[in-house]
Design a protein around this nucleic acid. Structure first.
Lengths: 340, 340
DNA sequence: TATCAACACGAAACCGTTTGCGTAAAGAAT
DNA sequence: ATTCTTTACGCAAACGGTTTCGTGTTGATA
């Protein structure tokens, strides 16, 4: 393998000092015209690129940001990531990504791996296990080391840092209100275990909307499913056991699955039951019928998170830390065929 | 913000030399028991972590690998990425990811950004534009600099490097043969523009299977769609204009979309027309009917690619380069309700 | 008592850059 | 002829580690 061209190798070949080469390449006017031209030509010829690792060491800045998310084969997280990557790149940052796989331990390991100077800060969404354990010491550790963190979507009040979230409660309220305006009254909620903060917020919006419209909450109309392991028979039974004319699901997977199951049981959508989901992904667009759903604008969330983080990285001073902010991204409902 | 603890700061506090601290933390037996304990305790107390950037500079190895893929909001690429990330992590590598967004220029920029010592090697799948332009000088540049590349899925013969691909041709052959065995004869192919090597391979498998079964190829039964912009009316017309009883689509999106369209036109699946797609993603599992599809085992591809790359990075010698290999991942057909 | 090995540690080079400062050479000013 | 400026460059420290080699101290041995 060929030797890398470095300042030193150029200096040796051209019989000048390393600093002269460095300055010449930066077009410093400390260096004579001829020398500059000579050096620049040589550098170009041998395709010199300043070693980024050395620069990072010198600057104590890597221009890398770490992203730790629970899952990557997941529409919402990929859209957020796309937003992060795009914005970060525009500002000259690279993105290192680690998947926690919904595991607390992996989340801890991931943070460990990158908090040794590999990245200048983190963007995270909490794993299911972390939310369940409600243990955030690993995040506190990082913050104590002076490394900034931005949380998005799956956040917690326990940690004081910049955050980007969706207006989950309001949009759920709006969704349920729409059902009611269409004359539907027996409105079900299909959600996950309540330790997911977003599900909980959506549930609150659901309850609030019912209350506001004088509909008594029927706990039987709330179905909690595990976020990945669920039983189709349970779902079928849920719909058979209760008179239901509208369903709000906290994600598009639940919605699509439920639609498939009730359709097999002869239910007409949206005539008999209307469905609405969260996450405007492939399933929503191509399910049958197509699904009315809440678009979370992941790209925007990602961009906002990256902006928060990079601003904070680049404004680091020895003075006090600027106050942390929370940006709320406004969701929108995309009307399709599963509602009228 | 608190000062980072470094070897130097520990040395200063404990009034020993930097090298003593370094050795003590590595449990070198050059250092006395008491000193070691003192240093280790101090380091633990102040949460010392060796600066990864400094180590990278010293070792001329970053333990980072760069992944450049065309898209991230994409089931197949995310599964591959998951495979890469998992395997790389097990071997102590971090993953920096760049999205080319199907653009040649971005692909070039991404490679530029990371080829300055930021990563030890690349795993890539070519962008649509790159495949169309058929220009791979940016890859050659990287290889010339002695940085290894592994290509997966969207590869090219122009570049000599390790590759991981699917047995596209054979599995397409098998898919079409299955149709024929079911008594179907008017078999359509819905594919992308032919500059995609994978689509081309699948098309060859399709043709070969027809030929092998004495079915004359009808070019009218081949529909080429742009990979992201397509017109539903065109698709509807295609199915109306031709008598078709089976369809092989090169991805699940095309398949799901076509199913939706023909169902709207009153076609029964799989009675009238059977459908098969590629990519065993969400759409396949939850479309109506569920889609028989070719599972590409992205995780396996990712793992294989990462293994190739890391082995090559860690075996770098001054001797000659070991011969490049191509690993072929075997696809499998997942039987669902869109075929009988 | 002189010699020597073992022990415990420090000095310094190195990885590749950047940058403040010192300085030799050359020309200008006195 | 002497002093002062420029000009054009080199030296060296610094970033945070690792590692080779050198060396002062100690106790044992001849």
């Amino acid at each position: 393998m060929r030797q890398k061209t470095t300042l030193k190798s150029i200096a040796r070949e051209l019989d000048v000092s390393i600093s002269t080469v460095s300055k010449a390449l930066k077009n410093s006017d400390e260096i004579g015209k001829e020398t500059k031209e000579k050096v620049q030509a040589f550098a170009k010829l041998y395709n010199y690129k300043p070693n980024n690792v050395a620069i990072s060491l010198k600057n104590k800045r890597t221009k890398n940001i770490g992203v730790v998310i629970p899952d990557i084969v997941h529409h919402f997280f990929t859209t957020v990531f796309r937003g992060i990557e795009k914005y970060a790149n525009e500002r000259g940052y690279n993105v290192v990504i680690c998947i926690s796989d919904e595991s607390y331990d992996k989340e801890v390991i991931n943070l460990e791996m990158l908090s040794n100077g590999s990245v200048d800060g983190f963007i995270m969404s909490l794993s299911a296990e972390t939310q369940k354990k409600n243990d955030f010491n690993h995040l506190k550790e990082i913050l104590n080391q002076g490394i900034p963190i931005v949380l998005f979507d799956r956040v917690t009040n326990e940690i004081d840092c910049d955050k980007v979230i969706l207006n989950d409660r309001e949009i759920a309220y709006e969704a349920v209100s729409t059902f009611i305006a269409d004359g539907r009254k027996r409105i079900a909620l299909v959600t996950t275990e309540s330790y997911f903060n977003v599900s909980e917020e959506r549930a609150i919006g659901y309850r609030d909307a019912l209350t506001a419209n004088n509909i008594t909450l029927d706990e039987n109309l709330i179905l909690k499913l595990h976020y990945k392991d669920f039983n189709e028979t349970d779902i079928s039974n849920f719909f058979k056991a209760n008179k239901i004319d509208a369903v709000l699901c906290v994600n598009e997977l639940f919605a699509t699955m439920c639609m498939g199951i009730v359709q097999n049981d002869g239910v007409q959508i949206p005539k008999d039951i209307a469905f609405m989901g969260f996450t405007d992904g492939m399933l929503s667009k191509y399910s049958k019928p197509t699904l009315t759903t809440v678009a979370q604008h992941g790209d925007k969330m990602g961009e906002a998170a990256a902006r928060f983080l990079i601003d904070r990285i680049e404004n680091e001073t020895d003075d006090e830390i600027p106050a942390y902010e929370t940006e709320i991204i406004k969701a929108t409902i995309i009307q399709r065929d599963s509602t009228n």
